[in-house]
């Protein structure tokens, strides 16, 4: 469960303030937001006043890796794969495997 640390939380009366940052999923939320910001900056560094451009391969590779990390975080923490049995994790991994097959097979490697 996402909140297996929270169920045993004795602090029953917390409000809407920053208290809930104590839970793990709020850290995940923060990480997702920061990664989103980084994602926006990578193709357009001038947003934060940087005057150079990243090279195209770097942009593509880093954006795809960041997206995969974010996807993994959502699946792992928010969809509770962290607390699931290996069988459910296997089911969840299956579409990634098959879509990898599909994308690699379909990609126009030498001009289609």
């Amino acid at each position: 469960m996402a909140s297996h640390d929270a169920t045993s939380d004795p602090n029953e009366g917390w409000g809407w303030g920053f208290d809930f940052l104590y839970s793990q999923y709020m850290w995940v939320w923060l990480a997702l937001l920061i990664l989103t910001l980084v994602e926006v900056v990578i193709p357009e560094p001038e947003i934060i006043g940087l005057s150079f451009q990243f090279s195209r391969p770097f942009v593509v590779i880093s954006l795809i890796s960041l997206a995969l990390v974010k996807t993994w975080m959502v699946a792992w923490y928010y969809m509770h794969l962290i607390a699931e049995r290996p069988s459910i994790i296997l089911i969840a991994c299956a579409p990634f495997l098959f879509s990898l097959f599909l994308t690699i097979g379909i990609f126009p490697w030498n001009g289609g």
């Binding site: 469960m1 996402a2 909140s3 929270a6 169920t7 939380d9 029953e12 809930f20 839970s23 999923y25 709020m26 995940v28 939320w29 997702l32 937001l33 989103t36 959502v74 928010y78």
Partner: peptide, 19 residues
């Protein structure tokens, strides 16, 4: 950003329900 926030608030629903 909004969708991610909406996602985390869905986690809160479950957490509060479990409490």
């Amino acid at each position: 950003f909004i969708l991610i926030c909406s996602s985390v608030s869905m986690v809160h629903v479950l957490a509060e329900q479990m409490r």
